[in-house]
Amino acid sequence: MRETPGRLLRLLSLLQMHRDWSGTELADRLGVTTRTVRRDVGRLRELGYPVHAAMGPIGGYRLGAGAELPPLLLDDDEAVAVVVGLHAGGVSGLAEASLRALTKVEQVLPSRLRHRVAALEASLLALPVRGPVVAAEVLTAVSSAIRASETLRFDYVSHDGRESRRAVEPHRLVSWGRRWYLVGWDTGRADWRTFRADRLTLRTPNGPRFTHREPPDGDLTAYLKRTMGREMWPLRAVLKLHAPAEEVAGRVDGEVTALDSKTCRLELASDSWDIVAFVVGMLDVRFEVESPPELTERLRVLSARYDAATQRGSIPGR
């Protein structure tokens, strides 16, 4: 028979698999009697773990959610993932809490995992987060409204500085490109909209409850790929590429439309013409700018600069 502390950890690990276990199954796994299983379940409850038991032929034990957070049991991969995730950060207001949690986890890591974490830390370069960072309380409030199916009321500032007041049935929070977005049904506009989470100021209390709708386009991921650029980035470029659509699709985050077997149209959204020039250059195909004129002018400036850089003894202008 295993010693009690080790057996309790093994029992807890089994219960954390989010399934029902009969007393007989647990006894077989642990190599003990069902009476011992009942005693060990009682010890876990004393430690704060809400182990639920159902009687009858289809009954069993299941680990539920409790009022307080008991000690957690992580396997090797989960422990490493937690440490790396806490190092990454990215939400304002959580830096101090992340540091406290990171210290607690690292203090109890066994040596084999310390080596894995050290290797990861030595291999990764953590760059500063670019752009605005959303406040943790905003993400928490939006998530709670999604779960409770409550309409959100907030003031919003668009990318061009226009202010508006919105009432939105929140559907999902999305992390995309180091920024957080809210996707929801705008009741005032009777349509789906995507909002930058750092640009909204929540108003309380929340509005009436609602019934969640089917995701836009029947697929939230497809909807975001189709609309994100249009709604979130102010600049839009349309180019004709001298390459088949199937060779371009999947290589760039934009809308690709076949014109014929040898050419296609690419629509890109960005907040910088330089980024558009970089992305198109990486495709390494001939192209023509259909719109706008501002992109054409920026390409002329960049072309002159690159041309000057190839001339011996010359210094590129700014």
Score class of each variant (00 low, 15 high):
residue 4 T to V: 01
residue 6 G to N: 11
residue 7 R to H: 02
residue 8 L to E: 01
residue 9 L to S: 05
residue 9 L to C: 03
residue 10 R to D: 12
residue 10 R to V: 04
residue 11 L to C: 04
residue 12 L to I: 06
residue 12 L to Y: 05
residue 19 R to G: 05
residue 24 T to D: 08
residue 24 T to Y: 03
residue 28 D to G: 07
residue 29 R to F: 07
residue 44 L to K: 05
residue 46 E to L: 09
residue 47 L to N: 14
residue 51 V to M: 04
residue 51 V to F: 04
residue 51 V to S: 03
residue 52 H to G: 07
residue 54 A to Q: 14
residue 54 A to H: 12
residue 55 M to P: 01
residue 55 M to F: 08
residue 56 G to T: 11
residue 57 P to R: 11
residue 58 I to Q: 06
residue 59 G to P: 06
residue 68 E to W: 10
residue 70 P to G: 12
residue 75 D to C: 06
residue 78 E to A: 15
residue 79 A to Q: 07
residue 83 V to Q: 04
residue 84 V to L: 15
residue 86 L to S: 03
residue 89 G to N: 11
residue 90 G to I: 10
residue 91 V to W: 02
residue 93 G to C: 01
residue 98 S to R: 07
residue 98 S to E: 07
residue 99 L to A: 15
residue 101 A to Y: 00
residue 102 L to P: 00
residue 105 V to A: 02
residue 105 V to T: 02
residue 110 P to S: 14
residue 111 S to L: 15
residue 116 R to C: 02
residue 118 A to G: 13
residue 118 A to V: 10
residue 119 A to T: 11
residue 121 E to S: 09
residue 124 L to D: 14
residue 132 P to T: 01
residue 132 P to Y: 01
residue 133 V to R: 09
residue 137 E to C: 07
residue 138 V to N: 04
residue 138 V to W: 03
residue 139 L to M: 07
residue 139 L to R: 01
residue 140 T to V: 08
residue 141 A to S: 10
residue 142 V to Y: 09
residue 145 A to N: 13
residue 147 R to I: 14
residue 147 R to W: 11
residue 149 S to N: 13
residue 149 S to M: 05
residue 154 F to N: 13
residue 156 Y to R: 01
residue 157 V to A: 09
residue 163 E to A: 12
residue 163 E to Q: 14
residue 166 R to I: 05
residue 171 H to G: 12
residue 174 V to H: 10
residue 175 S to Q: 13
residue 177 G to K: 12
residue 182 L to A: 06
residue 183 V to D: 01
residue 183 V to P: 00
residue 185 W to F: 11
residue 187 T to I: 10
residue 194 T to D: 02
residue 194 T to I: 06
residue 197 A to E: 02
residue 200 L to V: 08
residue 200 L to E: 09
residue 200 L to I: 10
residue 201 T to M: 06
residue 202 L to D: 07
residue 202 L to A: 06
residue 204 T to A: 12
residue 205 P to A: 10
residue 206 N to L: 05
residue 209 R to P: 15
residue 209 R to G: 15
residue 212 H to F: 14
residue 214 E to K: 00
residue 215 P to G: 10
residue 216 P to M: 13
residue 220 L to Q: 11
residue 231 E to R: 08
residue 231 E to D: 13
residue 236 R to K: 08
residue 236 R to G: 00
residue 237 A to K: 06
residue 238 V to I: 03
residue 239 L to H: 09
residue 252 V to N: 05
residue 252 V to P: 09
residue 255 E to F: 03
residue 257 T to F: 07
residue 264 C to K: 08
residue 267 E to W: 01
residue 268 L to E: 01
residue 278 F to G: 00
residue 278 F to S: 01
residue 280 V to Q: 09
residue 280 V to N: 05
residue 280 V to W: 14
residue 281 G to N: 13
residue 283 L to Y: 11
residue 287 F to S: 06
residue 288 E to S: 08
residue 290 E to Y: 05
residue 295 L to E: 05
residue 296 T to N: 11
residue 302 L to A: 02
residue 302 L to M: 03
residue 306 Y to C: 07
residue 307 D to F: 13
residue 313 G to I: 03
residue 314 S to G: 08
residue 315 I to T: 13
residue 317 G to T: 04
